[in-house]
């Protein structure tokens, strides 16, 4: 599928001036209303959170939280990744995820990237597997309002940590 004519896809950072764009996206993409902490993490993550623009229209986003561990190591947690329904299948999600993977690989103190996925969300699991993620843990009753309530932790190890494993 996809448009016959090539439309440009570009990424832009999230600042307090355009934070509302992210809020709008989240309000239609996810059944959750995110709290202030989420948006504070977003602003603190810098380059790790991006909005995706499809011919100048904001249509998707990836939002990460950087978790500091002992010894200066950092873990990247992907809080949300989503694209507006009409604009899916155009490679926008891939571009967003690749941006974060790329960024992480360039930073030597980042050892892993992980996220939570509902256990029945096969499309998502397959999507992440393509990028070298694997299921590392299952958490029972992670969700309170949806079925199944269980989730997987999906992780990709990079750099030295990968060697260790």
């Amino acid at each position: 599928m996809g448009a016959g004519r090539a439309a440009s896809i570009s990424l832009d950072g999230v600042r307090d001036k355009n934070l509302m764009q992210l809020k709008k996206l989240n309000s239609v993409l996810f059944p959750v209303r995110y709290n202030e902490k989420y948006y504070a993490d977003v602003l603190a993550s810098g380059e790790f959170t991006k909005l995706a623009y499809y011919s100048d229209i904001c249509v998707g986003s990836i939002a990460c939280r950087l978790e500091k561990k002992e010894g200066g190591a950092v873990r990247v947690y992907i809080m949300t990744l989503g694209v507006l329904a009409p604009y899916r299948g155009l490679g926008i999600g891939t571009k967003l995820l690749e941006h974060v993977l790329d960024l992480s690989s360039k930073q030597s103190n980042i050892g892993e990237i992980y996220l939570h996925v509902q256990t029945n969300n096969e499309d998502a699991i397959n999507f992440y597997k393509k990028f070298g993620f694997e299921i590392t843990e299952t958490i029972q009753n992670y969700y309170t309002n949806i079925t199944p309530p269980d989730c997987y932790v999906v992780t990709k190890y990079i750099g030295q940590s990968e060697l260790k494993k």
Binding site: F30, P31, L81, G82, V117, A124
Partner: peptide, 13 residues
């Protein structure tokens, strides 16, 4: 925060 994510959005992704 952010416990349910990537559920709906990634189904079609």
């Amino acid at each position: 925060n952010a416990k349910i994510e990537n559920t709906k959005a990634l189904k079609d992704l």
